[in-house]
């Protein structure tokens, strides 16, 4: 009879203390890893411990969950393009920022060259491999300001035959020396260097990006 009482006590402790403790340790470890993936210090995951504070603990935990869901993550800041894309017409005509005010020492201008240098190459190459193994290679230049990327079900300038690619899927905006990308809202999604581009993001500059993903098709971006 007494042994049964001790057994019940141990079982009660097991379910009231030990199991919740294991659950807490496990979820805190996972929260640590999630924080690291989002770009925060891992110890931010210790917020999970607030859940065991009696009374208001769960409320604090849920408030912190909401904060985490809606604040900007360092991962997003690191993946965001440094320069906002500017539509054609809004670029300064000379393409250079104004000189800062201040005294400038007079200098003799060099004599003009006999022949103007050739303009820098402004073409681009998108290359990669389809999931089935077929190679893809697109080369384009600034002769067309916009190019549509998509499956062959609809007219597209760059056609990708893959089930994850929409028709149309995305639009490339080509400017002299600059390139922008716009997602057209297909389920497959569009990624720039691992960060998802959403239709609500509008057009993002990808001049300095290295990898674009349309659905499950990853393509490397390079200058021609």
């Amino acid at each position: 009879m007494e042994a049964a009482g001790v057994g019940a006590l141990i079982a009660g402790k097991l379910f009231s203390v030990i199991v919740p403790l294991i659950f807490l340790c496990l979820t805190t470890w996972m929260a640590w890893k999630i924080m690291v993936k989002a770009g925060f210090p891992g110890y931010f995951g210790l917020f999970n411990i607030t859940g065991i504070i009696p009374g208001i603990g769960w409320i604090v935990w849920i408030i912190l969950l909401w904060v985490f869901a809606f604040i900007q993550w360092p991962r997003d800041a690191a993946n965001a393009p440094r320069v906002a894309y500017q539509p054609p017409g809004s670029l300064p005509p000379h393409g250079l920022p104004p000189l800062p005010p201040g005294p400038v020492a007079p200098q003799a201008l060099p004599s003009p060259p006999q022949q103007l240098p050739a303009p820098a190459a402004s073409g681009w190459i998108l290359s990669g491999v389809l999931p089935g193994g077929a190679p893809l290679h697109f080369a384009f230049d600034e002769s067309r300001p916009t190019l549509t990327v998509g499956a062959p079900a609809a007219p597209a300038d760059l056609t990708i035959i893959d089930a994850s690619v929409g028709a149309p899927h995305a639009r490339l905006h080509v400017l002299p020396g600059r390139l922008g990308l716009e997602d057209l809202g297909t389920p497959g999604g569009t990624w720039i260097d691992g960060a998802q581009l959403r239709p609500s993001d509008g057009t993002r500059e990808i001049t300095n990006s290295r990898e674009l993903r349309f659905g499950s098709v990853a393509l490397s971006l390079a200058r021609a």
Partner: peptide, 21 residues
């Protein structure tokens, strides 16, 4: 349920990319 969601987020590879250590 919460444990499963946490596990997916913690141990899966995020398709949208993760912060580079």
């Amino acid at each position: 349920g919460t444990l499963i969601v946490f596990a997916i987020l913690a141990f899966g590879t995020w398709p949208a990319g993760e912060a580079t250590p």
